[in-house]
Design a protein around this nucleic acid. Sequence first.
DNA 1: TATTGTTATACTCTATAACTATA
DNA 2: TATAGTTATAGAGTATAACAATA
Lengths: 150, 150
Amino acid sequence: MQKHRSINHASAPDGGLADALVTSAFVTMAVVSRLGAEHDLSLSMVRLLGILADRRPRMTELADYLGLEKQTLSGLVARAEKKGWVARAPNPDDGRATDVFLTPEGTKLVRRLHAQGREALAPLTGALAPEDQQALERLLRRLLAARAAA
Amino acid sequence: MQKHRSINHASAPDGGLADALVTSAFVTMAVVSRLGAEHDLSLSMVRLLGILADRRPRMTELADYLGLEKQTLSGLVARAEKKGWVARAPNPDDGRATDVFLTPEGTKLVRRLHAQGREALAPLTGALAPEDQQALERLLRRLLAARAAA
DNA sequence: TATTGTTATACTCTATAACTATA
DNA sequence: TATAGTTATAGAGTATAACAATA
């Protein structure tokens, strides 16, 4: 394995919260992406499973939330179904709609991913003192609470 | 446009910094992704251009940093070159290596993206009081400083 | 021999368009 | 008519494998 110069930062050098947010997003996504790859899961699949952890949405809701077209989601869910992680059932209130939810096996997979995700991010999160970790989490959650307006 | 129930959060409900980090990463990436799409740019292309904003790496460095295989990067750079945003030149010190850098047009595009990115994220960042914005940026940068170990 | 980079090929993911069924 | 979802079909993006050139 040959060593060459390495790149040590990713965003514009002048700073700004937006830059820090985008850079940390790329770094975090890289970790999640790598974790997903270990299980042969695409980033969308990881996210799909994560969303279903505590919800039972219909297809259109899922597509909107994931930012995917409904046809694209059909394929993603079909693949997940084939793997045995999710199942579909007709919505009792609307004959046109289909609800999606995790199977027991899917639930197990999500739990495993969740645990491994925390572990994989530990080198980052662990760099902060406990009170800074709490402060960061609080600030991020406040930020996220505003995203309905975005 | 029909309204249906919407999903209001993306990660496990029990919290934890890792969850908040992943959720905010997905949300941030969605904003960046949408911005990129407006310019017909993939997420990888946005990131490539962003990295080149203040660097002139060789292909292998870029591939490592982006987490892409060198062949994949060849294609990405070729597409960017075709669009006139980047150029390649032989590395003066190593006859095997190729350096990549932004063209003037690429630089203009990156500046535009940067400005639009800040604007697109404003609904999120603006939800925090100025001192909280500073605190969040400081915490994120401290987190990122640790990622060499990850 | 090892490393840098490109080309050839195949697979995954996503979107556009056309269709069926229910409201 | 409008909405929910699926099924083609096509294009972008990525990886695996094989190759050419330089160290």
